[in-house]
């Protein structure tokens, strides 16, 4: 559905200084996929999204949505887009802004008011509908941005830092909204600093740093079988015996230990030995998510 083919974007200043924001970036996103893009500040995420929206042209390489240039696709079909920078005219009222975007999105006149009401209800903006944009808090503005992205049932959704500014309740609700977008024929790209969020929502996460695609991580369970990981084991009794059974265990206090396992089968084997040895295991949790470990490795490798 979406293709980046050897995309390089170089910004040139008037003084001739050039900065490479994206370099030889290639990635395909399949129809029906939810893809995350993760990377530190300045990694090139925003440039990638601007390229995908056709607001920037690649210096070399190409970007295609459904086989055509981004602007051609968007001018014909539109996309659902939530921008990290919430740029809506501050003098507009929230409801008017949604009505304007619904009109531009091509929602029929007869259905505009109903659809606007639906997204206002879905995103809990009812009490703010008459407020001007400049009077909205960051969180409410973010919800308004999400509401305008959801106005029409778009085949492509691009969400840039979607939970930025949202409180925990709305962060949770946002996850539910994105889960509902997971359906055949709908392609979603989420750029975020929040690895936990990407781990939960995306099927794959592209890790970018310094404009380059460092790796693409699948967030599914099978992948977890393949890689080493640090686990936090809390014991309710027999803590002294744990260190004997697993010599490499690091005691972090309060009955908790951090242990590195090379695979999930190795973890299970160690747990069996602990239980057989009389250790009361209370909980086992990954100290870091698979994605977080991959991110640390990928970004750490270049910094």
């Amino acid at each position: 559905m979406i293709e980046f083919n050897s995309v390089t974007k170089i910004y040139k200043s008037l003084l001739g200084r050039s900065v490479t924001a994206v370099e030889e970036f290639s990635l395909e996103v399949a129809e029906g996929e939810i893809l995350g893009i993760a990377g530190p500040n300045g990694a090139g995420k925003s440039t990638l999204i601007s390229l995908l929206l056709g607001y920037l042209e690649p210096t070399t390489g190409s970007v295609r949505i459904d086989g055509v240039r981004p602007r051609s696709y968007i001018e014909r079909h539109g996309i659902g887009y939530l921008s990290e920078l919430m740029s809506i005219n501050p003098a507009w009222k929230a409801q008017d802004a949604l009505t304007r975007f619904a009109t531009l999105a091509g929602i029929a006149s007869a259905g505009t008011a109903r659809r606007v009401e639906e997204v206002i209800d879905q995103l809990g903006i009812d009490e703010h509908r008459s407020k001007k944009i400049k009077a909205l808090s960051k969180g409410n503005l973010q919800r308004l941005g999400l509401a305008q992205a959801l106005l029409r049932d778009e085949r492509v959704m691009i969400l840039d830092e979607p939970t930025h500014g949202l409180d925990p309740v709305w962060t949770q609700r946002f996850r539910g909204i994105v889960e509902n977008l997971r359906m055949p024929g709908k392609t979603v790209i989420i750029a975020s600093h929040n690895l936990d969020e990407l781990q939960r929502l995306a099927g794959r996460v592209a890790i970018v740093d310094r404009g380059r695609l460092q790796r693409v991580v699948s967030t599914g369970y099978d992948q977890a079988n393949e890689i080493a990981g640090v686990y936090r084991i809390r014991v309710a009794g027999g803590a002294d015996r744990l260190a004997e059974i697993i010599p490499g265990a690091k005691d972090t206090g309060g009955g908790e230990f951090e242990i590195t396992f090379q695979s999930v089968p190795e973890l299970n084997s160690a747990l069996a030995r602990l239980i057989a040895g009389g250790v009361m295991v209370a909980s086992v949790v990954p100290a870091r998510s698979v994605l977080e470990q991959q991110f640390r490795e990928a970004v750490g490798a270049t910094t």
Binding site: Y55, E75, S87
Partner: peptide, 15 residues
């Protein structure tokens, strides 16, 4: 300048 284009032209509209 003010970035209003971001949302406007994510809709099916030719600039």
């Amino acid at each position: 300048k003010l970035g209003y284009y971001r949302f406007l032209f994510s809709k099916p509209v030719s600039m």
